[in-house]
C-alpha cells in the first residue's frame, strides 16, 4: 500500500517534471526568434572592453620613458613561465630591461603579469589577432612588445611613487606634501 502511495507520489513528480520539460522545450524553441549572440568574425569586428586580456605590450610612462624596470615580478607570477627578462642598470641608477622575452606560444592570457607589475609597464590589450605561421614568430622580444604610449594607465609613473631619493630621482617625492627638500645632514647631532 505504502509502495503504491509512493508510486503515485513519484508519478505526480514525473508528470510535473514532464510539464517543466515541455516548458523548457518551448522556451528553447522560442530562442529561434532571438538575436544571435555571436558575430560573423572577420566581417564583423567584436566590440572589446578596454580590460580585455589580449596581446601583452610594454608601455611607456607619461614622459615617454619605458616603464619596465626589469624587476622580474611578471616572470615569477607567470603560471606558464613564458616571460624571461634581464635587468640592467643605467649610469643614473635607473633599472630597465636589457631584454624582455615573451613566448606567446605559451601565454594563456591570464593577466597575472599585468596585476603583478608595479610599474604598469606590461599591459594586456584588446588585440587578439595573434596568429602566426611560424612558431618562432610567436616569441616576442622587447622591441616587439614596446609601444610608444602609456596604455590604459595614462598618468602613472612608478619612479615618482617609490618614495626614494637619489642621484636618479633628485628630491622628487610623491608621498606627503611636506616632503623634505634636501638630504639628511648626517653630521648633525642636534635632536
Amino acid at each position: 500500500m505504502r509502495a503504491l502511495v509512493q508510486y503515485c507520489v513519484n508519478l505526480k513528480g514525473l508528470c510535473v517534471g514532464a510539464v517543466t520539460q515541455v516548458r523548457t522545450i518551448g522556451m528553447v524553441f522560442l530562442h529561434a526568434a532571438r538575436k544571435r549572440q555571436t558575430l560573423l568574425y572577420p566581417e564583423e569586428k567584436p566590440d572589446l572592453a578596454p580590460r580585455y586580456r589580449g596581446r601583452p605590450v610594454l608601455t611607456r610612462d607619461p614622459n615617454g620613458v619605458e616603464r619596465c624596470v626589469g624587476c622580474g615580478l611578471c616572470a615569477v607570477v607567470c603560471p606558464v613561465d613564458c616571460i624571461a627578462l634581464q635587468q640592467e642598470e643605467r649610469e643614473s641608477g635607473q633599472w630597465f630591461a636589457k631584454f624582455f622575452r615573451l613566448n606567446m606560444s605559451r601565454c594563456v592570457f591570464c593577466g597575472l603579469c599585468e596585476e603583478a607589475c608595479p610599474t604598469s609597464a606590461i599591459q594586456l590589450t584588446p588585440d587578439f589577432e595573434l596568429g602566426e605561421y611560424r612558431r618562432e614568430d610567436l616569441v616576442l622580444e622587447k622591441e616587439d612588445l614596446l609601444i610608444s604610449g602609456t596604455g590604459k594607465d595614462h598618468s602613472y609613473s612608478f619612479r615618482t611613487h617609490i618614495g626614494r631619493a637619489s642621484a636618479e630621482f633628485g628630491a622628487q617625492w610623491a608621498e606627503g606634501d611636506d616632503a623634505p627638500q634636501s638630504p639628511v645632514d648626517t653630521r648633525s647631532l642636534l635632536p
Binding site: 613561465d81 613564458c82 616571460i83 624571461a84 605559451r106 622580444e141
Partner: peptide, 16 residues
C-alpha cells in the same frame, strides 16, 4: 619553487 621563465629563457634559440 618560484623559478621563472622556463618556457621563454631559451625561446630565442629554439621555440621548442
Amino acid at each position: 619553487p618560484r623559478a621563472s621563465g622556463r618556457t621563454a629563457e631559451r625561446a630565442n634559440l629554439s621555440v621548442w
